[in-house]
Amino acid sequence: MAPQIPAPPQIRLAPQDRSALDWSGLGEVTLVSIGATVGVVFVFALGVRILTRRDESGARPRLGGGRRRPSAPARVVAGLCFLTCAAAVAYGLYLIVPQFH
Protein backbone atom coordinates (compact mmCIF):
# COMPACT_ATOMS: atom_id res chain seq x y z
CA MET A 1 0.00 0.00 0.00
CA ALA A 2 1.37 3.38 -0.92
CA PRO A 3 1.63 5.86 1.89
CA GLN A 4 0.26 8.59 -0.36
CA ILE A 5 -3.45 7.94 -0.19
CA PRO A 6 -5.26 9.00 -3.42
CA ALA A 7 -7.35 11.72 -1.84
CA PRO A 8 -4.75 13.82 -0.02
CA PRO A 9 -5.55 13.34 3.62
CA GLN A 10 -6.84 16.53 5.06
CA ILE A 11 -5.63 16.52 8.58
CA ARG A 12 -7.26 19.57 9.96
CA LEU A 13 -5.28 22.75 10.03
CA ALA A 14 -4.24 23.99 13.35
CA PRO A 15 -5.24 27.55 14.04
CA GLN A 16 -2.14 29.35 12.89
CA ASP A 17 -0.99 31.72 15.52
CA ARG A 18 1.75 33.60 13.80
CA SER A 19 1.93 36.51 16.18
CA ALA A 20 5.26 37.81 17.38
CA LEU A 21 6.73 36.50 20.58
CA ASP A 22 4.29 37.17 23.37
CA TRP A 23 6.57 38.88 25.88
CA SER A 24 3.79 40.33 28.01
CA GLY A 25 2.19 36.88 28.27
CA LEU A 26 5.54 35.53 29.36
CA GLY A 27 5.90 38.25 31.95
CA GLU A 28 2.42 37.50 33.21
CA VAL A 29 3.18 33.79 33.55
CA THR A 30 6.38 34.65 35.41
CA LEU A 31 4.76 37.02 37.88
CA VAL A 32 1.65 34.94 38.51
CA SER A 33 3.65 31.72 38.89
CA ILE A 34 6.14 33.18 41.33
CA GLY A 35 3.46 35.04 43.25
CA ALA A 36 1.15 32.05 43.56
CA THR A 37 3.93 29.60 44.46
CA VAL A 38 5.50 31.82 47.07
CA GLY A 39 2.08 32.71 48.47
CA VAL A 40 0.76 29.17 48.82
CA VAL A 41 4.03 27.78 50.10
CA PHE A 42 4.39 30.63 52.62
CA VAL A 43 0.90 30.06 53.99
CA PHE A 44 1.47 26.31 54.19
CA ALA A 45 4.82 26.79 55.90
CA LEU A 46 3.18 29.14 58.36
CA GLY A 47 0.60 26.49 59.20
CA VAL A 48 3.27 23.84 59.66
CA ARG A 49 5.35 26.22 61.76
CA ILE A 50 2.46 27.09 64.05
CA LEU A 51 1.65 23.44 64.67
CA THR A 52 5.24 22.56 65.40
CA ARG A 53 6.13 25.67 67.33
CA ARG A 54 6.11 24.07 70.75
CA ASP A 55 8.32 21.22 69.59
CA GLU A 56 11.22 23.44 68.68
CA SER A 57 14.50 22.37 70.13
CA GLY A 58 16.11 25.80 70.00
CA ALA A 59 13.54 27.39 72.31
CA ARG A 60 13.99 28.08 76.00
CA PRO A 61 13.67 24.76 77.75
CA ARG A 62 10.42 24.56 79.62
CA LEU A 63 10.14 23.44 83.20
CA GLY A 64 8.85 19.92 83.13
CA GLY A 65 9.81 19.75 79.43
CA GLY A 66 7.68 17.50 77.32
CA ARG A 67 5.72 18.31 74.20
CA ARG A 68 2.83 20.66 74.49
CA ARG A 69 0.05 20.89 72.01
CA PRO A 70 -0.34 24.28 70.36
CA SER A 71 -2.92 26.54 71.97
CA ALA A 72 -6.44 26.63 70.59
CA PRO A 73 -6.04 30.01 68.79
CA ALA A 74 -2.80 28.80 67.24
CA ARG A 75 -4.54 25.72 65.96
CA VAL A 76 -7.33 27.85 64.50
CA VAL A 77 -4.79 30.01 62.66
CA ALA A 78 -2.99 26.93 61.37
CA GLY A 79 -6.33 25.51 60.27
CA LEU A 80 -7.04 28.71 58.35
CA CYS A 81 -3.64 28.45 56.69
CA PHE A 82 -4.33 24.91 55.52
CA LEU A 83 -7.83 25.91 54.44
CA THR A 84 -6.30 28.64 52.27
CA CYS A 85 -4.00 26.06 50.70
CA ALA A 86 -6.95 23.71 50.13
CA ALA A 87 -8.75 26.56 48.37
CA ALA A 88 -5.70 27.06 46.14
CA VAL A 89 -5.71 23.33 45.32
CA ALA A 90 -9.44 23.50 44.52
CA TYR A 91 -8.80 26.44 42.21
CA GLY A 92 -6.01 24.47 40.56
CA LEU A 93 -8.40 21.57 39.95
CA TYR A 94 -10.94 24.03 38.58
CA LEU A 95 -8.33 25.25 36.08
CA ILE A 96 -7.33 21.70 35.12
CA VAL A 97 -10.83 20.38 34.45
CA PRO A 98 -12.38 22.09 31.42
CA GLN A 99 -15.87 20.88 32.29
CA PHE A 100 -15.90 23.38 35.14
CA HIS A 101 -15.49 26.46 33.02
Binding site: F42, A45, V48, R49, T52, R53, A59
Partner: peptide, 11 residues
Amino acid sequence: YLVYRVTSRGK
Protein backbone atom coordinates in the same frame (compact mmCIF):
# COMPACT_ATOMS: atom_id res chain seq x y z
CA TYR B 1 14.26 30.11 50.92
CA LEU B 2 11.10 31.44 52.53
CA VAL B 3 10.07 28.02 53.87
CA TYR B 4 13.41 27.56 55.58
CA ARG B 5 13.20 31.07 57.04
CA VAL B 6 9.68 30.50 58.34
CA THR B 7 10.24 27.03 59.74
CA SER B 8 13.86 27.43 60.82
CA ARG B 9 12.99 27.28 64.51
CA GLY B 10 10.59 24.38 64.24
CA LYS B 11 11.64 20.87 65.05
